[in-house]
Nucleic acid binder design. Structure first.
Lengths: 142, 142
DNA sequence: ACAATAAAAGATAAATTTGTCTTTTATTAT
DNA sequence: ATAATAAAAGACAAATTTATCTTTTATTGT
């Protein structure tokens, strides 16, 4: 597993919220969980963190819900960083505290370019692109 | 984190055991844990699974310990598969059950070549190479 | 003002991963 | 045979991740 379960949910949830936002609609926890096939309450918690991390916005009360702020340019990497942190791209693959560029672990140089590639893919993938592909029924969210 | 903590320990432990095997010595749990800086009992459990998975061999009693069988050609991928399974290389990055080659998730095609690269790196890295580099003091195991 | 709605927050719990400790089993050397 | 050694096995515990449920707070429409 590359990403944590929370992070997988977070990405799918964000895509769904962004999709609704495109239609100028807010969406709630129940709807999101239903749409992406995730446990409702847990999804609520994740959406909450995404709001705290400024990925999503939310409004309480009737007509409230989660949405993507206008002019918000979201990339997948933002979600990954918000939920899983940067460890996937930086922490030593063999778990060595001292591993660094100057004192690399035996796999460091081999793995470095690969995780850079991975980071690049997440970095250049806008959430809007996933939304569009989803609208074209190119794939599902659950 | 790309690999689980258990898997990180497993790789480092295997390198150390292989190093001792090269000198025709068996080594015990206490020594391994000390050498790689891992929790002793937990390390014992991991060595146990590595034996069950035919990565390492072991002998009980005095003069016993863990060792690498003669003619055993170990690659890092073997250890990764034994401890973490194959999920890192195969399971959908967005956690979609139905994601496959024919019905890819929105990140599938971007991530596929990268995890293939990662698998290739682990596949072509023999444990013996890590042992040699370690002997040349190119790096540490803790 | 009031009722309804929906997120935020908090408390609790299940599951998994990580870690510890004790007992059992096998092997060796004396 | 016996004592010492060391892995195997099993029971238990802490920490983290995943998941659920309840209460509180903010907002809206009437």
């Amino acid at each position: 597993m590359i990403l944590s379960k929370s992070c997988e949910y977070a990405i799918r949830a964000t895509v769904y919220v962004a999709l609704k936002s495109k239609k100028n609609e807010k969406t709630g926890i129940i709807e999101v969980a239903e749409a992406i096939g995730s446990p409702m309450h847990f999804t609520g918690k994740i959406l909450q963190t995404l709001v705290r991390k400024k990925i999503l916005s939310s409004a309480k009360g009737p007509t409230g819900g989660f949405y993507v702020e206008n002019g918000q340019h979201l990339f997948l990497i933002d979600i990954v960083r918000a939920i899983d942190g940067n460890g996937l791209f930086t922490s030593c693959v063999l778990g060595l505290e001292k591993c660094s560029e100057t004192q690399p672990c035996p796999m460091h140089d081999q793995v470095k370019p690969i995780r850079d590639l991975l980071m690049a893919e997440f970095s250049k993938k806008p959430v809007t692109e996933l939304v569009e592909e989803f609208q074209q029924h190119k794939y599902f969210l659950k």
